[in-house]
């Protein structure tokens, strides 16, 4: 266990390398949070949603650049094979990557401004901590889904520029498809399109659900399920097939 912690910290220190880029990311995340928390919000959900929306975008960019492109350059420059030369299982290495390249950055970038906001407007948040945290969890689950796709892209493409570019392309395609589905619903009036679109934009849908809009709860199921499936896929790939060359 301690050897996993050591490699996790080593990898984290490598990706969170100071100064310029990462500090910028985190500071702008915090600023985004501050910006949104200057104006008092009426409800905890409202506050949580507003404070986390800019950091969400920043986190996605971070996952593409430091997550996907970072992992790909780890492969390209031979550090990945170093990791595999340690007495650490491939499964554990997959776990480390999920932590350092997806979960930790997501939680820090989205969580920091939300934490600040919750301190600054404690009276609002304390009235509905459960939903405040639900918004946060929704953001993280959404980022996790995007991050896992990015990570798979990185492991398969093995080239930093390509992985970064493909990740961004994937994300825009995802948004685009979402838009098309909404438009189809608008044009054709078929509710299926709307529900698929809502399933895709999990985090926003969850927020609307929390606000009390009339959304069937099952639209919140597909993305977490897809995340689990992709996670299993990731582990199978790293354990059985992946080669860092």
């Amino acid at each position: 266990m301690s050897r996993l912690k050591a490699l996790t910290s080593m990898d984290l220190e490598d990706i969170a390398r100071p100064p310029v880029y990462d500090v910028l990311v985190i500071v702008s995340g915090i600023l985004g949070g501050l910006y949104a928390s200057i104006m008092p919000r009426a409800t905890a959900v409202r506050l949580a949603v507003d404070v986390s929306s800019i950091p969400l975008i920043i986190a996605i960019i971070y996952l593409a650049v430091r997550g996907a492109a970072g992992v790909a350059s780890l492969i390209a420059n031979g550090v990945f094979q170093l990791y595999l030369s340690y007495p650490i299982s491939r499964r554990a290495i997959a776990t480390i990557l999920v932590l350092t390249r997806i979960l930790v950055p997501s939680i820090v970038i989205v969580g920091a401004p939300m934490l600040i906001a919750s301190i600054m407007q404690f009276n609002v948040v304390s009235r509905d901590i459960a939903r405040f945290l639900a918004v946060f969890s929704g953001r993280i689950i959404y980022l996790y889904f995007i991050g896992i796709v990015f990570l798979l892209i990185a492991l398969a493409s093995k080239r930093a520029m390509l992985a970064g570019a493909l990740s961004i392309v994937f994300f825009f395609a995802y948004i685009f498809i979402n838009g098309i589905l909404n438009m189809l619903y608008f044009l054709l009036g078929n509710e299926v399109f709307l529900r698929i679109a809502q399933s895709l934009s999990f985090s926003d849908t969850l927020n609307n659900y929390l606000i009390g809009l009339n959304i069937p709860y099952w639209t919140l199921i597909p993305l977490p399920v897809a995340s689990i499936v992709l996670t299993i896929l990731l582990y199978m790939y790293v354990e059985k097939r992946f080669e860092p060359t």
């Binding site: 301690s2 050897r3 912690k5 050591a6 490699l7 910290s9 080593m10 990898d11 220190e13 490598d14 390398r17 420059n77 031979g78 550090v79 094979q81 170093l82 030369s85 340690y86 007495p87 650490i88």
Partner: peptide, 29 residues
């Protein structure tokens, strides 16, 4: 119980020599 010297060895660039090796020491216990 295996030590490896790779061809054209590369390490996480942003760490210092000692930092990198202390992580390695912890990895190997």
């Amino acid at each position: 119980k295996v030590g490896v010297v790779f061809e054209n060895p590369r390490f996480p660039e942003a760490l210092t020599v000692e930092k990198m090796l202390s992580y390695t020491a912890r990895i190997y216990g």
